[in-house]
Computed example of a mutant assay.
Amino acid sequence: MPLADQPYAHLLRPHPGPLRRDERYDTAHFERLDLEQVQAGGALFLECAFTDVTFSEAKLRQARFNETWWERCRLVASELVESEWQDTTVQGGLFAGVSAYGAQLRRMTVRQCKLESVNLRGAVLRDVVFEDCQLRDVDFGGAKLTGVSFPGSSLDEVRFGGATLARTDLRGASRLGLPDGHEGLRGAVISATQLIELAPQFAQALGVQVRD
């Protein structure tokens, strides 16, 4: 669904100004902005859109994003610790070197994005879809994933150690590169082909020797 089809699209107004800590932003459209070292922790974004926006070394701790739309945005070396995301779509974006441990993601779609070196330890994800994404060095350690899926996504160096999974579907992933933490996959659904590919790693995690 494009931005124009969002129920709040006709209400959006351009917002070129700086972002501030603990501020509330309603129906604001942030477009073609380069926001470096912005301090907006605790801010609330309600029915807002972000288009071609770059956040570099941004501080967005405990920021809340409710019914927001993100397209072709970049978040680099930024802090999203304990942030909250609900009813949000992110597409065609980049998250690199992002700290988002303890974040809460609910009813969220992440589409055609690249996530590299993203810390989601202890996060809560419910009804989240990573569609056609590249996840590299993403840490879900100790996180709680419920109703999460990865259709068409490539997972490389992704960790689930200590995670709690329920209704988490990995069958659609194009690649499952999991270096460790395989016990954290308890509760996930994988395909028979994926099981065969992961069998040596499962055996190693269980201390089982496989010999012919």
Score class of each variant (00 low, 15 high):
1 M>H: 11
1 M>C: 09
6 Q>H: 14
7 P>S: 07
8 Y>N: 10
8 Y>D: 06
11 L>T: 11
16 P>W: 13
17 G>S: 14
19 L>D: 09
23 E>T: 12
25 Y>H: 13
26 D>Y: 15
26 D>E: 15
27 T>E: 14
27 T>L: 10
29 H>E: 15
31 E>F: 07
35 L>A: 04
36 E>F: 11
36 E>L: 07
37 Q>F: 08
41 G>A: 03
41 G>N: 05
43 A>F: 06
44 L>A: 06
47 E>P: 01
48 C>Y: 00
52 D>E: 07
55 F>N: 01
60 L>R: 05
63 A>Y: 04
65 F>S: 01
65 F>G: 01
68 T>V: 11
72 R>H: 07
74 R>Q: 14
75 L>D: 02
78 S>F: 05
78 S>A: 09
79 E>Q: 14
82 E>S: 13
90 V>Y: 08
90 V>E: 14
91 Q>A: 12
95 F>T: 03
95 F>P: 04
95 F>Y: 15
97 G>R: 08
98 V>D: 07
98 V>I: 12
100 A>F: 10
101 Y>K: 12
114 K>W: 14
127 D>A: 12
127 D>S: 15
128 V>K: 04
130 F>A: 02
132 D>H: 09
136 R>Q: 13
136 R>M: 09
137 D>A: 15
138 V>A: 02
139 D>Y: 09
140 F>V: 00
143 A>D: 00
145 L>D: 04
145 L>S: 01
146 T>G: 11
147 G>M: 03
150 F>H: 05
151 P>T: 06
153 S>H: 08
155 L>H: 04
155 L>N: 05
157 E>K: 14
162 G>E: 02
167 R>Q: 14
168 T>V: 09
169 D>M: 06
180 D>F: 04
180 D>P: 00
181 G>C: 09
186 R>T: 14
186 R>L: 15
186 R>S: 14
190 I>T: 01
191 S>Q: 05
192 A>T: 12
193 T>L: 12
197 E>M: 01
197 E>N: 03
198 L>D: 01
199 A>E: 10
200 P>I: 00
201 Q>G: 03
201 Q>H: 12
204 Q>P: 00
204 Q>M: 01
206 L>K: 03
208 V>S: 02
209 Q>R: 07
210 V>E: 00
210 V>S: 00
212 D>H: 11
